[in-house]
Structure formats: structure tokens, C-alpha cells
Amino acid sequence: MITEKRRQLILHQVQIQTIVNIHDLMQLTNTSASTIRRDLDELEQQHLLCRVHGGAKALDLTLQMEPKVAQREQLHIFQKQAIAQCAANLVQDDDVIFLDSGTTTRAMIPHLSRYHQLLVLTNGVDTASCLAEAQIRTIVLGGQLRNSTKAVVGQSITDYLNNCHLDRAFMGTNGFDFQAGYTTPDPEESAVKRLAIRQAKKAYVLTDASKYQQIRFSKFADLSAATLITDQLPRSVSNQLAQLTQIMEV
């Protein structure tokens, strides 16, 4: 098994189980204990997990903590790609869409070049760069840059969005929960997401299933405000969510 795929499997298990041991990871990846230890050491250096005796555990995230972009890009890569492709298939020619600064929404970009006269609005610096490389018409919303997420926020963005009409808005989220809805650590990013959803004819939240029951500081929407595009959830959870909103599982 190649190193990248093995480490993705390890991170996925840590997210699901919170604590994992080396023996179980050896069986999961069919590799030696020394290889697993090297993987865990490297992932800890990247601040993606925390080493403990005999294994590793998930990082403890508070309501206001948010992993940096480089860290988030390493999590659930295969799920993000599938979710992003599903979301991109919903776009149509001549659409005006909003992409936020999330890593999953950014993964949509390779699938957007086929659309004619597409216009994308974004508050993500990295997202804007990828759109430019793909030669997709883009409006970059200006304001104050948040270093941790490479998202631009502030009053100038909300003023601009208030005068825009969007066909579709695609959002990432740091967590979703039946009671708390969709949440993110930063209130200013939350305000941009909330307004983009309001200004769009159709809104979508893209997130892998590991974010279920994760709650962060600032709520930006009820579950009913957007279609949820995710990977496989437990059947009981999907059935409950389907009573509140539309779900697309990949």
C-alpha cells in the first residue's frame, strides 16, 4: 500500500474511533509496526493527530479551534473528491455560483471547466488561485484575510453579497448536528456563509461524515437551509436527516 493511502486510512480511523492502537492499524494496512510508528510520528509532526502510548488519538478541538488549510487538505481526501465531483455535477451552463474557502469546495474546480459562461464568486484566496489556473471567470471578494483558513471576511464582502443574486452556493462546514445545525469556529466566516446561502436560489453544504455531531462556535445555517452532500452516514442518521433536509450521499 502506498504511503499516502495508508496515512489517509490511519487518519480516517482516528477520526472515527478517536483513539487507535498500533496493532489494529497494522491489520488494517497490512504493514509492520515500525512502518505504522513512522506514519504516526509524521502525522503528529503535521499536527493531524496526537501520539499516545501504543497508538494515537484525535486532536482535541475546542469550539473556536480550526485546523490550518494544509492540515485539512490531508484529511479524508478520497471522500472529499467524491463529494466535490457530485456537487460539480449540479452546476449548469451560465450559472453564477459561490464557492467558499473550504478544501472540499475547492476540489470541485477541476470539474467546472466544462461549463460555458460560468461565473464564480469566492472569498477563498487559494480557491481563487485554482480558479484562475483553470481559466474560469472569477470574482474575488475583498476584505480582511484570515491566515488560518485563507478566507477573506469583513463588512465589504457582506455589503457586496447583499447586492448579488446567485444560482447556487457551495459551502464547507466544520460540523453539522441536529440541534446546532451547520457551524464553523469564526463568526465572520459564518456571516459570509450565511449571507451567500440567503442570496442563492439553491444552497449546498459539502462535508464528509466525520463532521457529524461536531459543533463549533458559530452557527451559519439550519440543516434545512441547504442540501447536504456527504459520504455514507449510518442508516439511522440518514433517515433522521432526510426528515429535515435533502441529502445526497456518495
Rank of each mutant, 00 (worst) to 15 (best):
S148C: 12
S218I: 10
D177L: 07
V205H: 02
S148V: 15
F170Q: 04
V152H: 04
V140T: 14
Q214G: 02
I215T: 09
T207P: 00
Q144S: 11
N162V: 02
T184N: 08
Y204E: 00
G154F: 08
G172V: 12
N147R: 14
S210W: 01
F178C: 01
I136E: 03
Y204W: 05
T173L: 05
C130F: 11
S190M: 01
C130R: 13
N174M: 12
L141V: 06
A180C: 08
L223A: 05
C164G: 00
A128R: 01
R137Q: 14
N147H: 13
K201N: 13
N147K: 15
A203C: 09
D159V: 11
C164N: 00
A221M: 06
N147G: 06
D177Q: 05
S148K: 14
Y204D: 00
Q155D: 14
A134Y: 01
S156Y: 10
R146M: 13
V205W: 03
V192D: 05
A200F: 08
A200H: 05
Q214Y: 10
H165W: 10
A132K: 06
D186E: 14
N162E: 09
Q179H: 13
Q213K: 15
G143N: 11
A221C: 08
T207K: 01
Q213N: 15
D208G: 06
G142P: 03
L145N: 09
V192A: 09
Q144L: 14
K193Y: 07
V192M: 07
K150F: 06
A225W: 03
A134E: 09
Y204F: 15
Y182S: 01
E189C: 08
S210N: 09
S156W: 10
Y212H: 14
G181M: 07
A221W: 07
P187T: 11
K193T: 10
T158K: 10
G175W: 09
A203D: 06
A180E: 07
R194E: 04
P185V: 13
T149P: 09
L195S: 03
D167A: 12
F217R: 12
T207D: 04
F176L: 03
S148Q: 15
L223C: 07
S210M: 05
Q135E: 13
R146I: 15
D167S: 14
L145R: 13
C130G: 00
Q155S: 12
R216W: 02
T207V: 15
Y204I: 02
G172W: 08
G172M: 09
T138M: 07
V140Q: 13
V192P: 03
A191G: 02
E133N: 11
S190E: 00
E189D: 12
I197S: 01
V152A: 04
G154T: 05
L206V: 09
E188I: 06
